[in-house]
């Protein structure tokens, strides 16, 4: 029996990252996601949420349990109204950074999940949508 879980979390400060990771882990465990997939999902969550905090001053995360046929998983949507990303292709390259970081955040997060979509409008904000199947 698929669960209906929908949750909203605000990311305004570093501590919110910790809460968000823990909450996503709890929900993932609740739908029976294995520990490796849980870890991949919360790591991707941490990367994207941190980017949102660092480059857009914060934003919002929507967590939802998704079913598609026999597949069940977690979908997360990260939304901010920051400056946007002028060149998404560049931002998705390993090692590209405009901050003083490793530049692994977005491309690394993409490798850790099953589906990854990013949309950004300069001056309006960025939306990142990820999906991790329970057994994916």
């Amino acid at each position: 029996m698929p669960m209906t879980i929908k949750e909203n979390m605000a990311i305004q400060q570093e501590r919110d990252l910790v809460y968000c990771r823990n909450r996503v882990k709890e929900i993932a465990a609740k739908i029976g996601m294995g520990i490796v997939n849980q870890t991949k999902l919360i790591t991707a969550t941490s990367e994207i949420a941190r980017n949102m905090l660092r480059y857009a001053g914060g934003g919002n995360v929507k967590v939802e349990v998704i079913t598609r046929g026999k597949l069940e998983g977690l979908q997360l949507v990260f939304e901010d109204s920051g400056p946007g990303i002028p060149d998404i292709n560049k931002a998705m390259q390993d090692g590209f950074t405009t901050g003083n970081t490793l530049g692994l955040g977005l491309p690394g997060a993409k490798r850790l999940v099953n589906e990854f979509a990013i949309q950004s409008v300069v001056g309006k904000g960025t939306t990142v949508k990820i999906l991790k199947w329970k057994n994916g």
């Binding site: 490796v36 870890t39 790591t43 390993d94 490793l102 692994l104 690394g108 997060a109 490798r111 850790l112």
Partner: peptide, 13 residues
Amino acid sequence: QPAVAITLIELGL
């Protein structure tokens, strides 16, 4: 933890 090790390698770190 094993899951952390697996994740770090896929992350590219």
